[in-house]
Computed example of a mutant assay.
Amino acid sequence: MLAVLAGCGLPRSGPNKREIYAGSVQKQGDAFIVSVNPRVTRATAVYPALGFSKSFLNAGLLGSDTIRAGDTLGLTVFENVDDGLLVPEGAPSSVLEEVQVDGDGFIFVPYAGRIRAAGNTPEAIRRIITNRLETQTPEPQVQVRRLQGDGATVSVVGGVGAQGIYAIERPTRTLSAMLARAGGIGIPSDVAQVTVIRHGQQETVWFEDLYQVPSFDIALRGGDRILVEQDERSFTALGATGTQQLVPFERQTISAIEAIALVGGLNTNLADPTGVFVFRNEAEEIAEQVLARDDLQGAQRMVYVLDLTEPNGMFEARDFAIRDGDTVFVTEAPYAQWQKTLAAITGTAGSANSLASLSGN
């Protein structure tokens, strides 16, 4: 019977502790096996760094009536002389209709020259034209109005209440205000990420940081694209746990003890609490800190070991950070394997007795 069991092997959820340790570098394997302690926890506590660059943070608020390239303006000029530069004799004013803002953002006004319009408000353009004309005619009066053009707009897509294209108006000149205008977010705020794409530059922040870090509530620009999506990080749980599955992150950070809890904890009939392993491909610089070495080349295969029966084992598991792509594996207790062996022997003996009874009859 024992020979039969040794030949076919017993069913189990994965390798045992001895087999995992056999794959260590010290035993000619290709993985470093490291027991978790406070130093290891500090070295491996690396989380996604999300935030906006200076070019996004330093952009000033955009006026709700800012002119853009392609807009069409109407200009009216009043002159306090009988023979003015632009106003015909006997007429109260001169009207310049349909002055188009060119692709570079400029307009041309006779006697005032080429003027930067895009990025300015009608009031700012009025002041520029007035200053240029008053050197040639006394006390000119200028009116500027937008005839066509939608002004600055942004698109908001993804996990929001109402996707669409929205104008940048006075109440919606910042990122958080625009998200509120789009109906708020429709995914859990703990794992919501907000990406802003501007002139080919793409930058992302956590939704919650818009309120915790005021500087992240950046001013918007015409043409911005705003994408709201859920964090796609996940880890895999295998072995003697409540369930074996791919588990998405439910918050920005997850500890090893939380990861075990998310899959129903340890299987009380099978799990070995001294054999909780975290498999990870670790970046070279982090692996060197963990191993106190400076001669590694490239990413390294690391196996972190948590012993929940140690005096500080639960605390270490509470502090050790799980990262995207990790595999959390819990080995089976030797007792569970022994139970399986006994069950297999008993079953085999029972089958043999049955066969002997049948042959005797």
Rank of each mutant, 00 (worst) to 15 (best):
V34D: 02
V36I: 15
N58G: 00
L50D: 02
D209T: 02
P188H: 01
T346G: 08
P273E: 10
L270R: 13
A112K: 04
I185F: 02
G239V: 09
Y21I: 11
L296T: 06
N58A: 12
P140A: 08
Y304V: 03
D319E: 01
R39F: 04
R318W: 14
L358D: 14
K17C: 06
E79C: 14
D150R: 03
V101K: 08
T243R: 07
R233S: 04
E332Q: 06
I129N: 09
A6P: 03
T121A: 13
T195A: 00
G275L: 07
N120F: 15
V77C: 10
Q163T: 13
S215N: 04
R132W: 12
R170A: 09
A118Q: 06
Q100E: 00
V142W: 00
G222L: 07
S176L: 15
T241A: 07
Q141R: 15
V205E: 05
A352W: 12
A45F: 02
R221G: 12
L62D: 00
V101A: 03
V303K: 05
R251H: 14
I107L: 11
D104R: 09
P122K: 09
N353V: 08
E232L: 10
P334I: 01
Y335M: 10
D71N: 11
G265P: 03
L5R: 14
Q100I: 10
D324R: 09
G119H: 12
G275H: 03
D102H: 05
T331P: 00
T121H: 12
D217I: 11
T309N: 04
S215W: 01
E169K: 10
G183M: 01
L96N: 10
A349S: 04
I322T: 06
D30R: 03
M178I: 12
R198V: 07
T44Q: 07
D326N: 06
V305M: 00
I185E: 05
R12F: 14
Q244W: 14
Q28Y: 02
P110I: 09
A283S: 00
T66D: 02
G7M: 14
L227M: 02
L246E: 13
F216K: 15
Y47K: 05
V213A: 13
A180N: 11
L342R: 13
F235A: 00
T72R: 12
A69W: 00
E79D: 13
P248E: 06
G63R: 11
T44D: 07
V154M: 11
P122S: 02
V154G: 07
A31E: 07
G161K: 02
S64Y: 09
S24Y: 03
I128Y: 13
L147T: 11
S94H: 08
D307K: 05
N361S: 15
P171M: 04
I226C: 06
L147D: 00
T66S: 11
A352E: 00
L175Q: 10
R225N: 01
T348V: 05
I218F: 09
V25L: 02
Y47P: 12
V228N: 01
V142N: 08
E284Y: 01
S64K: 08
P171K: 05
L210T: 08
G105P: 03
G222C: 11
F56H: 02
E258L: 10
R145I: 13
R116K: 15
A22R: 06
S155E: 06
N267V: 05
E288A: 05
G313K: 06
I260M: 14
E134P: 09
V81T: 15
V109D: 06
R68H: 13
R251W: 11
H199D: 10
Q202W: 07
